[in-house]
């Protein structure tokens, strides 16, 4: 295989969405696909992968190295290696914003604070096993409010007097929201209050790392403009948000695949590949 035909793929299997990025030897993105992870955990991950290959008109065998990451990274039969989403996000974010020192990632089921120095992950914090302060919190509450989760951001912008949601527990917040609505508070003020609750929780957690600029916000929740502005307010600094905030983990995984391959080639060592098959990922160990 000629060096210029090397291709690297990152598969980020999150609790809600699976993200696939394929890059070439120059780090240029050839393909990117986001699809649902599926109710049965990672069963659909291979479908997202197939779609990404199709988009770039590539065969699976054409990919030189595949790295899986994310919540569902462990038993992925079509990956050569698994690396945590912590390291992959840091790599991806640093490639998009080389000046980054702190990254906050709010995903479907967890929230992470990352400390990055010279493009490398040096420390991190993660939320406990609790949905508060994550995308799931917004999904549950959007459902309570009979709104679509993707509309929350624009609705919250209409708020003039955001309400304070004191509960950090998703279930109690649901009760609090219902009682606020019955008090006659406008829905946009309630939504803005929910964004504020998430932002406050995530920023407080990340403060343990000492938030230094530049600060980058990623993850599916970064698509919500209401949360972005609330995080900005709580962090007290400007935020950088990638064009596609879901993809930084998958991009980082692909870039790490490229780095590992380059290291192996430089040392004249074989690339440590697994016998991979493009089939359904199995359940957790």
């Amino acid at each position: 295989m000629a060096t210029n035909s090397y291709l690297f793929c990152g598969v980020d299997i999150g609790s809600t969405m699976t993200k696939v990025v394929i890059i070439d030897i120059d780090g240029e993105i050839c393909s990117r696909v986001v699809g649902p992870t599926g109710a049965e955990h990672r069963r659909l991950a291979n479908k997202v992968m197939e779609e990404a290959l199709e988009q770039a008109n590539l065969s699976f065998d054409a990919i030189s190295y595949v790295i899986s990451t994310g919540y569902g990274r462990i038993n992925v039969p079509f990956a050569d290696r698994q690396i945590t989403e912590l390291t992959c996000h840091a790599k991806g974010v640093a490639s998009l914003f080389p000046s980054v020192r702190t990254a906050i990632d709010i995903g479907g089921q967890d929230a992470k604070g990352l400390k990055i120095s010279n493009g490398r992950l040096v420390d991190f914090v993660m939320n406990d096993k609790c949905a508060a302060g994550t995308g799931r919190f917004l999904e549950v509450l959007a459902d309570t409010l009979e709104l679509r989760v993707e509309d929350l951001g624009s609705i919250s912008l209409k708020s003039t007097n955001k309400v304070r949601i004191s509960s950090i527990c998703t279930i109690f917040a649901q009760q609090e929201v219902i009682s606020r609505l019955s008090d006659g508070i406008a829905i946009e003020d309630v939504v803005a209050g929910l964004h504020d609750a998430i932002a406050s929780r995530v920023v407080r957690m990340t403060r343990r790392l000492n938030i230094e600029p530049d600060v980058v916000l990623t993850g599916g929740v970064a698509k919500n403009v209401g949360v972005v502005s609330a995080v900005k307010e709580h962090a007290g600094c400007e935020l950088l948000v990638p064009h596609d905030p879901l993809l930084s983990g998958a991009l980082g995984a692909a870039l790490l695949g490229k780095e590992l391959t380059a290291e192996a080639l430089a040392k004249g060592e074989p690339i440590q590949r697994k016998e991979r098959r493009l089939k359904e990922a199995t359940f957790f160990t």
Partner: peptide
């Protein structure tokens, strides 16, 4: 059962 989510943190620490 509560140990599984800690795996990512330990693995992340080892990567760091």
């Amino acid at each position: 059962g509560s140990l599984a989510p800690l795996r990512t943190r330990v693995q992340g620490f080892l990567e760091v």
